[in-house]
């Protein structure tokens, strides 16, 4: 057991959460991060789906990495990912229909999410299944929590709710508080993400040098 959770493996898991975050530092997977974050619920579902798919595609590619011819590896990786995304998409349609309608094409677009291809190329092709699994989970969660932050800010300021529950008290509206409709527009997602990056870089300024 101690070997499974050795220092290196913990590092593999923890690095993408902060210092090597897929969205903030590596700038991967931006498209879906912006498009699904108008509300908190689709953001959480999307984050979990990406985490699961990254972890399992990492494991599968890592298991068969020695048998993949180098020239056609991209196609093989894409097919593995596409198959996993098809399964996740069907599960979402069956068990969380409302959310899957909200996510619309962005579930299918997980296939072209750069985080997946980036991790497969950079990590799973060179490491064993267990390390790849941890790396996938770490990167998926690193992606998910940024989505949750952006989603929470947009839903709270845009419609005064979180996960559909009203947070802003009635009294505030009576006193003249107005929901910022701009927050639900796509443009604000970019600006909020820009601010998150700003904060993150200010905090980590010393460590990066």
């Amino acid at each position: 057991m101690s070997k499974l959770f050795s220092k290196e493996n913990r590092q593999v898991f923890a690095a993408p959460l902060n210092l090597d975050n897929p969205i903030l530092i590596q700038v991967l997977g931006i498209c879906s991060a912006l498009a699904v974050t108008a509300q908190l619920e689709p953001a959480i579902v999307m984050g979990l789906s990406v985490t699961v798919i990254t972890a399992f595609s990492n494991v599968i590619i890592s298991l068969i990495r020695k048998t993949i011819p180098n020239r056609i590896r991209i196609i093989i990786q894409l097919v593995v990912v596409a198959a996993l995304v098809t399964i996740v998409s069907m599960i979402l349609t069956a068990f969380a229909y409302d959310v899957s309608v909200q996510l619309s094409v962005y579930v299918g677009l997980i296939i072209t999410n750069c985080i997946l291809m980036g991790r497969l190329e950079a990590f799973a092709m060179m490491n064993g299944p267990w390390e790849s699994f941890l790396d996938g989970i770490g990167n998926g969660l690193g992606y998910a929590y940024i989505l949750v932050i952006v989603g929470a800010v947009r839903e709270l300021l845009g419609s005064g709710t979180l996960l559909g529950f009203t947070i802003i008290p009635e009294g505030a509206y009576a006193a003249g508080y107005v929901n910022n409709g701009m927050m639900t527009m796509p443009a604000m997602a970019l600006i909020i993400l820009g601010c998150v990056i700003w904060v993150h870089r200010s905090i980590n300024k010393e460590e990066k040098k």
Binding site: A189, L190, I191, G194
Partner: peptide, 14 residues
């Protein structure tokens, strides 16, 4: 801290 990626995002937002 805003240089590079951060300001680009805000520009695209505008």
């Amino acid at each position: 801290p805003l240089r590079g990626l951060g300001i680009t995002f805000i520009t695209v937002g505008l």
